[in-house]
Nucleic acid binder design. Structure first.
Lengths: 258, 258
DNA sequence: CCATGTGAAAGCGTTCACAGCG
DNA sequence: CGCTGTGAACGCTTTCACATGG
C-alpha cells in the first residue's frame, strides 16, 4: 500500500448530500442525476466492480509520481481498455481535462468517496475455522479501512481465544456485540449448513453487508448486500477451460489479463 | 458433501472425443456442435460460471432422494431463475424429459464431465503467508478433487515445514516439482509485488490454470486460464452499496440471493 | 397435461468513432 | 493537437412466451 494519506483530506461527506450537490458539482445535476430526489442514481453494477481496480491503479500512479493519468494509462494499470475507463468515469461526472487526462489525486478522492471509503467499517468475522482464521489474519482488510473487531464461533474451545488480535465470542453474544461495536459488515465463514441461520441473525442484529464464503446460496431481505466468494466454484471454472483446451474447440484469443 | 460416489461411474473421457461423439450422442452433433472440427464449441462464459452452482444444487437433490429435478426446482436450489437453467442446460444438449424434468443422476454426470471434473487435479500453492496457509488447510478443495500436492515460499524459515499436510518447498524448486508431480493448477497467494514474476515461472513450468489471490493484475499468454479472487475488492463493492443506501437513490428490489 | 427446449424480444455492457473542448 | 466525454452500434445475457413432445 503506497502512501496515499495525503489524498484523503476531506472526511466530510457533503458533496453528494442532497442540499450541497448542486453547489459542489452543478454539471452533475444536469448530466448524471436525471431522476432521483434522494441523490445520485446507482452506477451500473459492472462499473462498481471496476472502481476498486481503478483506485488501486491510481495508487500505482501516485507511486510513480504522475500528477495526471490518461484513460489509456489507467486502463493499462487496471487491465481493462481505455474506452471502458472513460465510460465508467463519465458516470461519476467530468473530472478529466481534455487533452491532459485526470488529476491523479483528485480522481483518487472522488473514487474513494464514491465507493463510500471516506470512513472505516467495523466488521464481524463469523466462523473461526481454517478459512475464518485466515481471514482474521489477512492484513489487506485493515489496510483498506475494514476492521475486524469481533469474531464468533460455536466451538466453546475457541471462544475466549483470539484470531489476529481479535477476540472470539460465543455465537450467543452476536446480537449484543454487533450492536455495541457498531458492526455493519460481516465475513461469513461458517459451514454451509448453518450459513442461512447465521446470516439471518446478523441481519437482525443490524448488519447490512455480508461477504459469504460458505459454499451455499443465501437469501436476504431487500436492502441487504450480499457478495459471494466461492473458492471451489472458481477452481471448477478453471477446470472447465482446462478440459476445453484438451477436448473442445478453443478460439485463439489475445493474452488474458486478470 | 453428500455421497455422490455412485454418480461418477464412467471415468473414461470418450464421449466428447472427436471419434466417438457421434456414436455416443448423435443429437449433439446436430444441435450443439455446428462449427467445430476439434470438438464442441465453448459455452457462454456466464453459463460456465453457473454450472458449478447447478452441480451443487444437484447434490442437494440427491440428498433429498429426488430421482428427477425440474428446472424450477434446480433454479430454486441454485438461486437463479428457471428460464436461465433451461437455457444453460440446453447448451449441453437435451438431457431433460418434457413433462418430467431432468434425471438427477444423469444430469450430475453430464455436468461433471462438462466441467472436466471426471478426473482430479494436482494443485500448487504458492505463498505460505496467512492467506496461503488458510488455503492449504481448506478442505473444500480436496473434497472436490483439487489436491494441493506442493506449497512454495521464499522464506527459508517456512521451507521444510508443512501446511495442512503438504510440504513447503523453496521457490527455486518450483519448476522441478511442478513437472515431477504433474501439477497443472496453482493457487497464487504471494504479495502483489512478485505475483507477475511467479505466474511467469508457473506457466513456464507447465501450469495452465491459475487462481490469483494477489491484489494485482496479471497477464499471461493465450491458452492460460486466470481467475482472480480479490477480497478487498469485494468489501469495497459492499461499501459502495452500503453508502448508496445512506446517500444515494436505491431502487426497491426483491430479496437478493447469493 | 406438464415441463422442456427455443426462437424472439428486451436489457445490459462493451466497443467504436468522433464531436467537443482545453 | 490530444484526450476526454458520449451518442450509436454491436454483442452478449437474460427473460419471455409458447411450440413441442413424452
Amino acid at each position: 500500500m503506497p502512501d496515499v494519506s495525503g489524498l484523503v483530506r476531506d472526511r466530510h461527506r457533503t458533496v453528494y448530500s442532497c442540499s450541497s450537490l448542486f453547489i459542489a458539482a452543478p454539471h452533475l445535476a444536469l448530466e448524471a442525476m436525471p431522476a432521483s430526489p434522494a441523490g445520485r442514481r446507482l452506477l451500473p453494477e459492472a462499473t462498481v466492480r471496476r472502481l476498486p481496480l481503478y483506485l488501486r491503479a491510481l495508487t500505482g500512479a501516485v507511486e510513480d509520481h504522475q500528477a495526471t493519468v490518461s484513460s489509456e494509462d489507467l486502463a493499462a494499470r487496471a487491465g481493462v481498455n481505455a474506452a471502458k475507463v472513460r465510460k465508467d468515469l463519465s458516470y461519476l461526472g467530468s473530472y478529466g481535462t481534455r487533452g491532459i487526462g485526470y488529476d491523479t489525486e483528485l480522481l483518487y478522492q472522488h473514487l474513494s468517496r464514491e465507493l463510500g471509503l471516506e470512513h472505516d467499517y467495523n466488521v464481524a468475522l463469523v466462523g473461526a475455522g481454517n478459512l475464518g482464521r485466515a481471514l482474521g489474519h489477512y492484513r489487506g482488510f485493515t489496510e483498506r479501512g475494514f476492521h475486524v473487531v469481533a469474531a464468533f464461533d460455536t466451538d466453546p474451545a475457541k471462544v475466549g481465544g483470539h484470531v489476529g488480535g481479535t477476540e472470539i465470542f460465543p455465537m450467543a453474544e452476536l446480537g449484543r456485540i454487533v450492536k455495541e461495536k457498531g458492526i455493519t459488515m460481516a465475513l461469513l465463514a461458517t459451514p454451509a449448513a448453518v450459513a442461512q441461520e447465521v446470516v439471518d441473525r446478523l441481519v437482525e442484529a443490524g448488519v447490512t453487508s455480508v461477504l459469504n464464503f460458505a459454499p451455499t446460496m443465501l437469501s436476504v431481505a431487500a436492502g441487504i448486500s450480499l457478495q459471494r466468494v466461492d473458492l471451489a466454484v472458481e477452481l471448477q471454472i478453471l477446470s472447465y477451460y482446462d478440459s476445453s483446451r484438451r477436448h473442445r474447440y478453443v478460439p485463439a484469443t489475445a493474452s488474458a489479463t486478470s
